[in-house]
Nucleic acid binder design. Structure first.
Lengths: 192, 192
DNA sequence: GTCTATAGGTGGATAGAC
DNA sequence: GTCTATCCACCTATAGAC
């Protein structure tokens, strides 16, 4: 039934879910095998060791955000719309019990292979850079307001979204995320 | 040399450090034993299982914050001074490579014993309640400004401090924390 | 590609000597 | 209280049959 690529994708999908829900040290090849419906050894055929799997997962996650940002830039013009669109996948993830993959991994980075940390850093840098760009353009256009270094605003938005996910998930209360996310964006409203 | 209580305290101190740096699923009784200079079995004398140890750690951490808040309320009057004092232990932890114990645990809570989750929730609730009280009093006194629900402001401050720690630790850049923490507090400045 | 079988290590935990 | 010795479950990973 399942072709080569399907199995590989399935392993990645399942692993990503386990990683976003349980953390890198909270899931095993046995968990993946059980969920996918194959044997542990088969996973090693695609990903020789857990480090390879982790690296592939962050690379894929990073790429999905690259595409998200590109789509947003293509389909929206004003900064506030861009930011709202950026928040959407965080809410979707939360509804599935997930938190940001890189936010999760950054927490346990002291226990991770270096290759994975390099990818995490790239993810964070790229998103911070994009958010910085969006915020600056928004202020230029007069629809966004902030004081102090714009990079700090971008950083706070990024960690705020992850923190809001984590908090809302812990409390089992999606509303918590929505309120915090709304507050994070409304903080950029132009004072009349 | 070491008396009974000393060993127990030493186990707690070492375990707390391991927990704040590596996460619950990132350290073992072997790690503790090595750092303390005893055998694994000896740890089970004080903490029969890891769940007991984890619970004791969160209880102790929760108590330390209870004392922190009491000390702040005793020694400061205005809201802004209280908030600044509240930030201090987060910076101290970061300088030691630690992040908030409960912020870390909330991330991996899906893999934790329920008893531990109950303690984490109490920690978060207590701090959110205190921050809410401080913010409301500050606005009453006219030295603090915010819009929207005050609980959301308190929640964002709490997750913001943890996120700032996590981010700064990942980048190996304390300045990152200081900039974000400063921004979190300056956001409450009264607009002239 | 997927399997069985297994290696070699480490996890938390217990029994019982001292 | 702390130790040695040990258990068993689980971990990542490999070899080799199919």
């Amino acid at each position: 039934m399942a072709e080569k690529e399907d199995t590989c994708q399935l392993i990645l999908d399942v692993s990503q879910y386990l990683l976003q829900t349980r953390g890198y040290n909270g899931f095993s090849y046995a968990d993946i095998a059980k969920a996918v419906g194959i044997r542990k050894a088969s996973i090693h055929y695609y990903f020789p060791n857990k480090s390879d799997l982790g690296e592939a997962l962050v690379k894929r996650y990073r790429e999905s955000f690259r595409q998200l940002r590109a789509r947003i830039d293509r389909e929206t013009d004003d900064a506030l719309s861009k930011l709202k669109r950026f928040v959407e996948p965080y809410l979707e993830g939360l509804l599935d019990g997930r938190v940001c993959l890189c936010g999760m991994l950054a927490e346990e980075f002291t226990t991770l292979p270096k290759q994975i940390c390099v990818e995490i850093k790239s993810f964070l840098d790229e998103n911070e850079a994009w958010l910085t760009k969006v915020l600056m353009a928004g202020r230029e256009a007069g629809i966004i307001s902030y004081q102090g270094p714009v990079e700090v605003e971008a950083q706070l938005l990024l960690i705020g979204l992850h923190g809001a996910q984590s908090s809302a998930r812990f409390y089992g209360d999606t509303k918590r995320f929505e309120l915090m996310a709304h507050r994070l964006l409304s903080g950029f409203a132009v004072k009349a």
